[in-house]
Amino acid sequence: MATTDTVYNTTTEQQPKTRKWLNVPSENLETIRFGIKVIEVLLSFVAFVMEEVVSNCSHCGPLYFFEFVSCTAFLFTMLLLILLATTLHKKVGIDIWPTLDFVYTTAMAFLFLIASVVFAADNGQTGLEKGTVAFGFMATIAFFADFGFFLKMRGIPCQMRNNQPADHTPRPESEKLNSNGTE
């Protein structure tokens, strides 16, 4: 009887589920890209905070544009990082995470570059503004590094879908359209 107890106990007892809250590396985020994304979040946050401390501006348009880009980069990169580094991305209902990540990272790299260049060209040249611009360029470099590493590891996700062989299996709708009403 002791042998049957050991057989049944090992198969019928509930095993404790070990849940990891951090799921890196995963199918959507490699360990190196996770580190780069953390750096993007930190640099965007510092650039945003430093921009917020600037009290005087002669031409405020570049400052406000930099503020918008740095705040957007901070918030959305943090959201993307949380979604991709945990299992939450499975509950959102989006199936194209690599494409979304690629497009977002590319857009933020170019927006941060434009905002940093514009703010560097037109600011009051105070130490705080120069530091803000420096963090803007560092964040730009981080986003471009993420973009480059993504290309190196995965290629362009949008092109991958277009290179798949076409499915030429006739469908009922296409058969009706091709019949020209001569059924």
Rank of each mutant, 00 (worst) to 15 (best):
Q125N: 13
Q125R: 15
T126Q: 06
T126H: 02
G127W: 10
G127F: 14
G127S: 13
G127E: 11
L128P: 06
L128T: 07
L128F: 03
E129V: 12
K130F: 06
K130M: 04
G131C: 00
G131S: 01
T132F: 09
T132D: 08
T132E: 05
V133L: 00
V133W: 10
A134L: 14
A134S: 12
A134Q: 04
F135K: 04
G136R: 11
F137Y: 04
F137L: 13
F137R: 05
F137A: 08
M138Y: 04
M138C: 08
A139N: 15
A139L: 13
T140L: 06
T140K: 01
T140S: 05
T140N: 01
I141K: 06
F143L: 00
F143M: 03
F143A: 02
F143Y: 05
F144I: 01
A145R: 07
F147P: 01
G148Y: 01
G148P: 00
G148R: 00
F149R: 13
F150Y: 08
F150K: 04
F150T: 09
L151P: 01
L151G: 10
K152E: 12
K152M: 10
M153K: 06
M153G: 02
M153E: 15
M153Q: 13
R154A: 10
G155N: 04
I156G: 01
I156H: 07
I156E: 09
I156P: 04
P157S: 07
C158T: 13
C158P: 09
C158K: 11
C158R: 14
Q159G: 14
